[in-house]
């Protein structure tokens, strides 16, 4: 019996595009579609979303009965530390202020790599913060508060 073969990367890829397409299509459908001659806000996105679903489906069907490269390793540690860094900056820049927020952001990002030693990370984050404060805050006068209201008493 012939076992079912498929290219797992393209299979997931196709499904992802179909899923995204359906998301956009549903969202667009809840808007006013209008007609081709008097387009509403939903018309153009709806057409695009349908195209996306179509492309996703083609990728999906092409993936069946071929084998391809696997997905390979996934940078879980990177995802865990890199992605939260800008979010943390966004959450704290106004509350903590520019200086502590940037310092901690750099520190968080630094731990994404297994090679980074804690001391190096501290030195790096400190140096980076000093540089940025000098350049952006003092040099260019960007309107960031250096220390935010959360640190006042």
């Amino acid at each position: 019996m012939k076992s079912l073969k498929f290219d797992s990367t393209n299979l997931i890829c196709g499904l992802l595009f179909i899923g995204l397409g359906i998301f956009f299509a549903l969202q667009a459908f809840s808007l006013d579609l209008g007609t081709a001659f008097r387009m509403g806000p939903g018309y153009f996105p709806f057409v695009l979303a349908c195209a996306l679903i179509l492309f996703g489906a083609i990728i999906f069907f092409q993936s069946i009965r071929v084998t391809g490269e696997g997905i390979g390793p996934i940078a879980w540690r990177g995802i865990m530390f890199i992605l939260p860094a800008p979010i943390f900056f966004g959450l704290t820049v106004r509350g903590l202020g520019f200086v502590p927020s940037l310092f901690l952001t750099a520190l968080i990002a630094a731990f994404a790599s297994g090679r980074m030693r804690p001391l190096t990370a501290l030195v790096l984050a400190t140096g980076l913060t000093i540089f940025s404060v000098l350049v952006f805050s003092y040099g260019l006068g960007l309107p960031f508060r250096r220390f935010g209201p959360w640190l006042e008493f």
Binding site: T105, A106, L107, R115, L128
Partner: peptide, 14 residues
């Protein structure tokens, strides 16, 4: 690289 990317993340946040 492990030194470069915290720098990248900080600057791109700013």
């Amino acid at each position: 690289y492990y030194v470069l990317f915290p720098i990248i993340m900080a600057f791109c946040s700013i």
